[in-house]
Write a protein that binds this DNA or RNA. Structure first.
Lengths: 220, 220
DNA sequence: GATAAATATCAGGCTAAAATAAATAAAACA
DNA sequence: TGTTTTATTTATTTTAGCCTGATATTTATC
């Protein structure tokens, strides 16, 4: 059984290695997890001794198969709990992350599977992120962002890149919710800001905002 | 914010002091929590310094008002999660304790209150134990046990004293469920065993079993 | 290819929560 | 009441997970 801290490292390594698909360095982890690099090295040795990661001194780490499976199971729990909080307990999508950070460490496979079934085997969490199934299989999701669209193209808003509460609150305020159709009406060459249309209204958004929205392109 | 370990001590002190209504000794706690007495002493000093308990050297401890409130909030969480597991996720009453032991440490008042409301403000957990409300008020429950009944008296089975999985499994096997009406048909003076009747069948039970069942007497 | 800068590791130390072992206080009893 | 037994506390050690500061390795730069 893994400690809380070990689980957090595994999850962090998963996120970092999935983002840019290469070995994760000590300093990346140190930054992400907000511990000193020396502490990270200590933990990496421990995880390597448990065969959860493949660790080469000075060369960074990569999750082993077991490590990856472990990470996926933690992510599965996190995201299922988020769905529970939003769908059953009426939390907003910007409130659930912290609570799910705690719930993801509860140990009971049966609990997770029952929860999954209680929620009707949801495919995605409230932020549009895919939920691994009980075999650790996870849908790879379309990486198109709103900022990638051409003028006059449109698509469905399916997920966020940045799921910080402040960003989610901003989206709520503007009425931008998962599943809405957004179309690009203007592109400002100067600062890459966009004028978008949805629900019959227009909104000007910054390049950063556009980069933080995942879009599923409408078939043409 | 309290550590996991601190919370477990607080809860243990609550249970012990409520059981026989007097100060809890180091050795009682040591036995209950399965730590060495010396470790218990260390923790008691710490809890006293946080004003959660009133600690007198060699005289045992008692929870302060804050301590008691803290205990009640942990118990509230534990019991609400048990209800959730049984009612919503179809767990059996003998499977939920361990999982609830973990869930009771999740920190979020909002979560607990939402859960309470989602479950329709249940009064008791699956073992018949009362659930404190959000103000820390808890119903004191009737302490009549099946072993206290006279010959030919009957009552409703409302709770268990011993909620170990093995006892609960035994009750399930015999079809003895919360809410059933049980009546005493014979009392064996020799070993205090009883012949009871419920659901139109008869069962012989030991004195120990009878002591472990809380009964609400039928009005006469 | 040598050297500076950036990264990573090692050695040693701190704290929380446990353990052991030794010392002391309280309770039991002769 | 004095002595023995039991309970409790104090002192010291261990382990996990973090830290700081010193050293080693890699990468970048001239």
């Amino acid at each position: 059984m893994l400690s809380l801290s070990e689980e957090n490292y595994i999850k962090a390594i998963y996120h970092l290695q999935t983002k840019d698909n290469k070995r994760v360095s000590t300093s990346q982890l140190s930054e992400y997890i907000r511990n000193k690099a020396s502490s990270v090295t200590d933990m990496l040795k421990k995880l390597a001794s448990k065969s959860l990661i493949e660790y080469k001194k000075y060369q960074g780490v990569r999750l082993s198969n077991t490590g990856e499976r472990t990470a996926l199971m933690i992510i599965r729990k996190h995201r299922l709990w988020e769905v529970f909080l939003v769908e059953k307990l009426d939390f907003n999508w910007d409130e659930v992350h912290e609570i799910a950070e705690q719930l993801e460490h509860i140990q009971s496979e049966k609990l997770v599977d029952r929860l999954d079934s209680f929620l009707n085997f949801p495919k995605r969490d409230p932020h549009g992120d895919p939920i691994p199934n009980k075999h650790g299989e996870i849908e790879v999701h379309n990486k198109t962002r709103l900022s990638d669209l051409q003028l006059n193209e449109s698509g469905i808003f399916v997920g966020v890149v940045d799921s910080s509460a402040s960003f989610l609150v901003y989206l709520d305020k503007q009425g931008i919710a998962l599943g809405k159709s957004l179309s690009v009406k203007e592109k400002e060459a100067y600062d890459n800001s966009l004028l978008i249309e949805y629900d019959n209204k227009h909104l000007r958004i910054t390049a950063l905002t556009a980069q933080n929205l995942y879009i599923k392109l409408n078939e043409r």
